[in-house]
Amino acid sequence: MDFLFDSIISAILLAVSLDTELLSIVAVSLKVSSSSTLFAGMIGVPLGFFIAFESFKGKQLVITCLNTLLALPTVVIGLFVYALISRRGIFGPFDLLYSQKAIIIGQTMLIIPVVTIFTIAAISRIDERYRKTAMTLGANRLQAACIVMREARFGIVAAVIAAFGRVISEVGISMMLGGNAKGFTRTMTTAMALEYDKGEFTLAIALGFILLFLSFGMNLLFNFFQGRTET
């Protein structure tokens, strides 16, 4: 028990002293996670909007596939992207493996289904009469779609926040595609795994606290936007 207590005290001191290694790890984590969330949002929001708004053959099948992808383990995506960007892969010449870009690609693939499914849910919750009202006021299909999007904005923001929460805490993709290179591709989760292997718990626990703090912040934001959606 003393060991855990001492580790926690040391971790808090480390975090408060703004240790440069700790800050560098947090900065890399935030950078790759923010980038992947941005790209996933750029792809997932319009995709989710299209699926929710349009009627087409196989729509339910597409939604089922996306739901299945939500449960995809990060190591599977790590393996898949590794096969594509390793030297022998079709994107091998771009030399992406063990770079932040590789992590961003993998994480983007991980959360596109999350953003898409949450966007579909947010759009589907919007009363059909919003679209009809926009149309009777003279809006074309695109303008009516923008009105629906606007009404679903809080739900869509919540989708993006949920996706960020997923990537900031994942370890498989960052480890397999980033390689955990210090100061370069070392994220909070990969650093924690490494410190654990080394038997050094202080940094791991400090990072754990920061991760928990970020998750708490994300959840607060998520609940705020979900609350706005319900009102």
Partner: peptide, 22 residues
């Protein structure tokens, strides 16, 4: 659809429970 949209600019429907944008 292409023909109806200009016509909708001349005819406005008000629902039983109208929707106002938020």
């Amino acid at each position: 659809e292409s023909q109806l949209q200009p016509l909708r600019k001349e005819v406005v429907m008000v629902n039983q429970h109208p929707i106002l944008f938020t």
